[in-house]
Design a protein around this nucleic acid. Structure first.
Lengths: 190, 190, 190, 190
DNA sequence: GATGAATGAGGGTTCATTCAT
DNA sequence: AATGAATGAACCCTCATTCAT
């Protein structure tokens, strides 16, 4: 009988989660290709071989992470796609984006690092394209409601502006993204 | 003393350039870690061993590329740091940035891919930080001249906006960056 | 003391047999070294760990199989070693060999596959040598009874002839071994 | 300048041949799957990595060996497929087979070891099938010329007889294959 | 300057085996 | 008896780097 019988063991302590967590951290920091499986295993505190009981390979580990992240994004987007008040939609998008980026820094850092590179995982490119396309359509409508001349262009400017903020923050966490977010909102919301 | 002292024969420079060019292309496309030296040599049409006559190692190859790119950037920035007309400065920065990004897509794709990741090459982070810092200061002044309330914030918004456009374009070259650039200029320049 | 003491329930024997049967099939098909224990366990429908309750290791599994097979062979050989009529002995040996080979294809395929290779299991070599030696002696006598000039040579030819038929059949089950067996018998039996 | 400048260096000393030779020896002795690449490299006296300069992988190494062996067989078969005297054809086939088997023991041991097993290298099965098919046709004609009732059956018996001798010899090199070969020839040639 | 054969460290992965349950 | 999570050694292979030529 060992001590683990007595202590509470949260679900997140299960090995699969530990591995996923370490992999995310290391992939985000060093890059996917530059992170050996051995490093992940060591960081997760498991043997290297065990990894393959949970994930068929390094690639699947990445894929699992991306999939999970994509699900999170979808979920969080549900929160405001249905908002009818356009000013509120803008405000929500800015704050929600900042919120999710701060909560899942590592995931987003990884995503941005590989979104420019083919060959690692095509799903990432597809995922990004889809997010962008979906959100652009939503905000095209929003800016039309706000009476802008060229709503699509305006939506693109708005979204790339946020993209820029996010990247800057991911690169340097002391970047005042919240402050700039508020300033950005002011532009559209009196 | 070798014969090259007497005749101008940039033979080695040609090879060096070929290697650098191939490396840039491949690093930008596949990522630094995922690009074997053998691939670079083959693409450049030289032997693998020759590479080590020009660059002490794979890392130095990357470093050389970044250095060269940094020099290019500095040079191109010289063009408009001295502009006194603030509106013109904004216009110039937007058009110049778009111009340079289009001209050196691969370099910038590489730079953005690794700017979020430590461990690959700290110089990149430093380079970026410096660029951002310099340009921010310039545009803080510009926006002050334009009478903005919070010139630094405004400069940061302006610059991250451009950052966003650039990233979007690097990811998808069909992205209408020129059109959006013009639209962005209109915001500040009547 | 467990309940199984009271009812006859050869449960473990069943499992052991299942494992042995799967192992035989897979070793024969893929080869011993190329067959992972995991594959055997899955095919047998038991856990991988259970295997080690019956057999101390993969090697022992093979050894057990060979041992069991050797016993079967001995038993089947008993049927005709005592035959005094030489022509009948020849007829019996041919038909019995064909019969046993067809009945235990997998075992024989495995045996033949490793009989040429040292290092896997020396017992196999020994087993083969012994079979050959025993049978050769028997048929030396048989051919002497039949009045052959060089009975030992004749016995060896006879036995290698059968060996050839068997191998051919094991390699290609459409090979008409029965027909050829009858033809072979005709040579010696009017 | 090193000593190798002074000594004669036969073509067979080149690394590729060394590797091939070691691989053949080890595959024949231990079996393909049971022979690690590291063992081959050590036996050949080269680094493990170098192997991959000559052969894309372990499988290709085997394939190369088989291919080479197949070529040798074809060549040696050319010697007597054209013989018109049937008795001479039989004599030649027996002696030639024995000759080639003794000369290339290792190759044949390997070939026989894997001919019964799928999954290792399908080419082996195909190679065998083709050899058997070709030779059977030739000897069907031969036995027809000799006036046999069932020439195909007789050819098959003849060939499997040789097969049996070969296998026996490969298993035990003290087996008197030459003597038995002569005895076999006597059966058909007065 | 230029080559490419050669190396050795380390990469991802498999697998026989153990052991707590 | 039975499981399957866990391990570590070993496997095949890649790759940055060196060096004789």
């Amino acid at each position: 009988m060992n001590e683990r019988s007595f202590i509470y063991m949260p679900k997140s302590d299960n090995k699969s989660h530990l591995i996923l967590r370490s992999a995310l951290k290391l992939f985000a920091t060093n890059g996917y290709s530059a992170t050996p499986v051995s490093m992940i295993a060591k960081d997760a505190g498991v043997s290297q071989g065990l990894m393959y009981n949970f994930f068929p390979g390094k690639g699947e580990l990445l894929r699992a992470m991306i999939k999970q992240g994509a699900a999170d994004i979808s979920e969080s987007m549900q929160a405001y796609v249905t908002i009818s008040n356009p000013q509120e939609a803008i405000r929500m998008h800015v704050t929600e984006t900042i919120h999710i980026i701060k909560k899942k820094k590592e995931f987003w850092r990884l995503l941005h690092a590989i979104r420019l590179q083919g060959g690692v995982l095509d799903e990432v490119q597809d995922l990004f394209r889809e997010i962008v396309s979906t959100v652009t359509k939503i905000f095209e409508k929003v800016f039309r409601q706000l009476g802008f001349d060229r709503p699509k262009l305006e939506a693109q400017l708005f979204l790339t502006q946020i993209d820029g903020l996010v990247i800057m923050y991911l690169q340097n966490q002391k970047f005042p993204i919240e402050q700039l977010g508020r300033q950005l909102i002011k532009r559209y919301v009196k």
